[in-house]
Simulated assay, not measured.
Amino acid sequence: MTRTPHDNFAKDFLEELLSPLGKVEISREVTDEARQIDVLFSPSSTPTLPPESIGLLAKLVTQTSSIEIFRNQPNLFQVLMCANKLYSYFAELNRQAKRENVSLDVESLGRLLIISTTVSQDLLDTFGATINPAIDCSGVYSFPKGWFGSIIAINKLPVTKETLWLRILGKGQIQRRAVDELLALPNTSEHKENTLRLIANWRIITIKQTNLIEEDQEIVMNLSTAYVEWEQKTLEQGRQEGEKRLIIRQINKRFDVIPDALVEQIHQLSIEQLELLSEAFLDFSTITDLEQWLENRT
């Protein structure tokens, strides 16, 4: 790297002043280990679901976001490392911009979002984090402007529908209540089915571990009700798929091949309707009987 006259002077000057007090290394190369951002999110201009479906979280990620998640409160060094990963990402974008000879808008590069189950006032004070005025929600704190980020204290979030998807990442009673709220949502709610599947998988992986620590046991307990509902739903779906395959195979056997449109109608039937069709099918003489039966059920 080319050294400017000012650069030469400043480094030599500080070496002169500091050498009597200790070791001075000029232009010391620093090799950093590879670090992984937990979640790097870049918003789409055409989302496939309305952002409000994930409540508060959508308001926090309106631009590219480096998201770091903590099951326990991060310490000072961990927060610094989170920021370091974001700034390393900024440096990567800057190198790319130089190669392409384009300018960067620093404000739009991205933001750091730390999500933690708990955050002490001491940690907030250490980094000068205060309530985010743009969000105006307890538990959502902004770092000073140059930090380009926020920290979320899940334990301080209000219990509302908007915060549900963040509170699922909480601990203890906070997480248990969030899971109960998730189960109370209509089955047609966006994200409910997939979240139940992910929760069930989390519980399965946790319970397979040997020598579960107290925190692992708490997770298993918190997720149990969600796991039971997922298991029952999965069994019901398996039974329903089995019923569909059986009835379609029986119809094909009697009437050779049935039209795709009728197959699609059969796939739309509930488990109760499939059972009724299995009984009614015994009296069918032609494919027209099946068509009429399906028409009467839609």
Rank of each mutant, 00 (worst) to 15 (best):
L14C: 14
E15K: 15
E16V: 12
E16H: 15
E16I: 09
L17N: 07
L17I: 14
L18A: 13
S19M: 08
S19Q: 09
P20M: 04
G22D: 07
G22I: 09
E25A: 11
R28D: 08
V30D: 09
T31E: 13
E33T: 13
E33M: 08
E33R: 15
A34I: 14
A34R: 14
Q36E: 15
I37K: 07
I37G: 11
I37M: 09
D38E: 11
D38P: 01
V39R: 14
V39N: 13
V39D: 12
L40E: 11
F41V: 12
F41G: 10
F41R: 13
S42E: 15
S44A: 14
S44M: 05
S44G: 10
S44H: 11
S45Q: 14
S45V: 10
T46Q: 12
P47L: 03
P47H: 07
P47Y: 07
T48G: 09
T48K: 14
L49E: 08
L49P: 00
P50W: 01
P51S: 07
P51G: 07
P51V: 03
P51M: 05
P51C: 04
I54N: 04
G55Q: 07
G55I: 02
G55L: 06
L56E: 02
L57A: 09
L57T: 05
A58V: 10
A58P: 00
A58F: 08
K59N: 12
L60S: 02
V61C: 11
V61Y: 02
V61K: 08
T62D: 09
T62M: 06
T62K: 15
T64Y: 01
T64C: 05
S65G: 01
S65F: 01
S65N: 02
S65A: 12
E68K: 01
I69G: 04
F70G: 00
F70C: 01
R71A: 07
N72A: 03
N72I: 04
Q73W: 00
Q73V: 02
Q73I: 01
P74L: 05
P74A: 05
N75T: 03
F77I: 03
Q78M: 04
Q78R: 06
V79Q: 00
V79W: 00
V79G: 00
L80K: 06
M81A: 01
C82Q: 03
A83W: 06
A83D: 01
N84L: 11
K85L: 01
K85S: 12
L86C: 02
Y87L: 10
Y87D: 02
Y87K: 12
Y87C: 06
Y87T: 09
